[in-house]
Amino acid sequence: MIVRESELMHYGVLGMKWGVRCYQNKDGSLTSKGKKHYTDDTDTYNNAEKSKNPITRHKQNLINKYLANGYSKEAAEAKAKQRMITEATVAVVGGVAIAVVGKKVATRVGQDYCDKIIKSGHEIQNVGTNSKETFKNKAFYAAINKHDKDVYSKVFPHKEQLSVKSYDGVYINSLKTNKNIKRASNNTARKVMLNMLQKDPEYKSQVLKAMNGTRYGWLDREAPEDLLKNDPKKFYDRFNQALATPQFQSSKVREKFYKELEKKGYNAIIDINDTKYTVYADLANEPTIFFGKDIVSKIKNKGLDESDINKNAAKYANQLIRKNGAKTIAMSSSSYTMIKSYLNQRKVEEYTKEHPNTSLSRKEILAR
């Protein structure tokens, strides 16, 4: 309001009257015009879902999906935007198989930059070889969605059966989260690690020593010191890969890293090894590492015998064969590895059934 010697001027909304509120009632609640004017986020989302514009509807459906999966509003919007950019690229290229790759890329982008909340009471799954494990106060990997549970329950046991000579057995452990668990994005976890290395020379020395003592899964020969200086992102990849190695566990490097993340409210990170570098890279969507005391409760566990393991592997291999058979490009290397493993196993079983007294080894049977 501007007051002058001989004038009184007031600026407002066209049609408003002195003392009459257009947007609020006397008790402070919004009028129908007010509700329309001050549309909250929920109404915006609902209106977007009902929009006649298919692009607007699609975008909001994506946002709602990510919100339902525990992402914050900002993270959900970022993932939806990236997903739509990827889909636009796919539409230009125009290929069924490429669309699958695009979806994977969008998922990876979200994992790189978006933290995620895994809600309290959510059932997750660990597959391991220790039937007595309680998961009370140790780091462990787990599948957090239906797709990954299917992958790990069918691929991991078969993989263990072929690579481990003796073990207690393979068990599918069903776990329930005891609280909302915040999973750090790769970007967040990397920043925490780099900050620790910068502020604590002793820890930095321990990390470099441990990493030089193991090259688990490394596809290059670059020294950790060079990676840290020239490519911090790849350095974190190698650091993350080495978290399960004896070198990291014996030097307490892993525990210190997890404790620092816990201070910042995190109890989980992405398993980069299975995301990028192992047979699961093209199969699993969100392999996750959990850590912290009493963050989950064990509901049940189920032991798998050799027959179960082989049947599950065969079932999954057949799924991959049917799925990849409809694509226009060759199968991924991990899918091929899984199928080849299954076919080899079947060949060995058929041969030993026909020749029960054979003295040939598995390798010799496969070479025939």
Rank of each mutant, 00 (worst) to 15 (best):
Y203T: 09
E74M: 08
E364P: 02
L162W: 06
K81I: 03
G70A: 05
I339N: 03
P224F: 05
R4D: 15
F291K: 08
E262N: 09
K311F: 13
R83H: 07
H58P: 00
L360A: 06
G121A: 04
Q206D: 14
A80L: 06
T129S: 00
L243D: 06
P356H: 08
V92I: 13
K363Y: 08
T328Y: 07
N301G: 05
S297T: 15
L360I: 03
F291W: 12
N312E: 07
K17Y: 13
A189S: 14
K179A: 15
F290E: 03
E74L: 10
S334A: 09
S185A: 14
Y171K: 04
S6C: 02
R21E: 09
K59R: 15
I309R: 14
E225M: 05
D226R: 07
T89F: 14
T328A: 11
A143D: 08
N145C: 13
D40Y: 04
F257Q: 11
T86Y: 08
Q247I: 00
K179L: 12
I270Y: 02
K204P: 07
G292K: 02
F257D: 05
G121I: 01
V296C: 09
Y336E: 11
S29Q: 04
F235K: 10
F135C: 10
N357H: 10
Q125M: 15
V13H: 10
I329M: 11
T275D: 14
K138G: 03
Q198V: 00
T358R: 08
S361G: 13
S120P: 01
A106V: 02
L8S: 05
G213N: 14
N126P: 03
I55A: 09
K36D: 12
L197W: 04
K26F: 06
L343R: 13
S6I: 03
V105Q: 11
Y66N: 06
F291P: 07
A142P: 12
Y167K: 00
N180S: 06
S153G: 09
I55T: 08
L360V: 05
S251D: 06
S166M: 00
K259R: 11
